[in-house]
């Protein structure tokens, strides 16, 4: 059992948790994730380790409620315990001094970007970050990203805060201005990662994306998380989660992530029904 020692609401249906897991806290590196199972009937879901505190023996995760499992976690409070937490899984991000590193976070994707931005900064990069959300109230980690970056740019789709538009427009501006970018790290919804990769591809700028396929075990045993990268099958949980964005078959990932749409909807309906009236937008 893994105790929740702290819970914070960052935005509507977006929560940050600190979870007691001393060994993972000691070992984890930027880019790695954990797999959690909330209770006996639960499924195993992957979430990025955003931060850790070795002294406290805790890891930090940030999650958005999108379906039943994340809704169950979202309902948990300080003092509750998560049944299973496994990690740190996946390969750590490849960190080196690239010169200028542009970190792009879209929506909840800003959470996995944060530890990578920190690590890149610590390795001597000039870190320029762009974080975006649909609207101001959904924007997360502004202060943390500001601290981790040399420069921070913000976008909202509806113009309620920062630049009116998409993160890729800001990125395109940098390129057009002739900025010498060593690496771009883009994490967010699949369409956003595809857009980031498409933006940098004509200029051959090294671009890393962190993929979020459906997983089961997270240890390379099942193959549920396979994606095509550079024409080859890769298991995201052991070969990734980060890959060269120019080589990822995003279309396939989108379709595979929809495999259980019908079932996910059913699970969620049953859940909200049993939970009683709970408000969703």
């Amino acid at each position: 059992m893994f105790e929740i020692t702290e819970k914070k609401e960052l935005a509507h249906t977006v929560y940050q948790f600190k979870i007691k897991a001393p060994l993972i806290a000691k070992k984890r590196k930027a880019g790695q994730f954990v797999v959690l199972r909330m209770n006996e009937h639960g499924e195993r879901i992957p979430l990025t380790i955003v931060d850790s505190d070795e002294k406290e023996g805790t890891i930090t995760i940030i999650m958005q409620e999108v379906g039943k499992s994340t809704a169950i976690l979202g309902d948990m409070v300080t003092g509750d315990s998560i049944l299973d937490v496994v990690g740190p899984l996946g390969k750590p991000t490849h960190i080196e001094n690239f010169g200028i590193a542009v970190c792009v976070g879209g929506g909840i994707g800003t959470a996995p970007v944060l530890p990578i931005a920190k690590a890149l900064k610590a390795a001597g990069n000039k870190v320029i970050s762009i974080i975006g959300a649909r609207t101001k109230s959904l924007l997360i980690l502004e202060d943390e990203m500001k601290q981790a970056s040399d420069e921070l740019y913000i976008t909202t789709d509806d113009g309620s805060y920062g630049h009116h538009g998409f993160v890729t427009q800001v990125l395109q501006n940098f390129i057009d201005e002739g900025m010498k970018i060593g690496v771009v790290v883009g994490i967010g919804p699949v369409p956003m990662m595809r857009a980031v990769s498409n933006t940098t591809k004509p200029y051959n700028i090294h671009t890393m994306v962190s993929l979020n396929p459906i997983m089961v075990d997270g240890t390379g045993m099942c193959g549920a998380c396979r994606v095509t990268v550079g024409g080859k099958n890769q298991f995201v949980c052991v070969d990734g989660p980060e890959f060269n964005g120019h080589e990822v078959n995003f279309e396939e990932l989108v379709l595979r992530n929809r495999s259980y749409m019908k079932e996910e909807k059913l699970a969620m309906e049953e859940f909200t029904y049993h939970e009683g009236a709970k408000c969703y937008e």
Binding site: G42, R44, V216, M221, C222, A224, A267
Partner: peptide, 20 residues
């Protein structure tokens, strides 16, 4: 994957169990 979903995760009892 197929067997893990069904055996370990009890997908045959979905939606009582969450794994589809």
């Amino acid at each position: 994957e197929y067997l893990t979903r069904v055996n370990l995760m009890k997908a045959y009892q979905f939606p009582e169990f969450d794994t589809p």
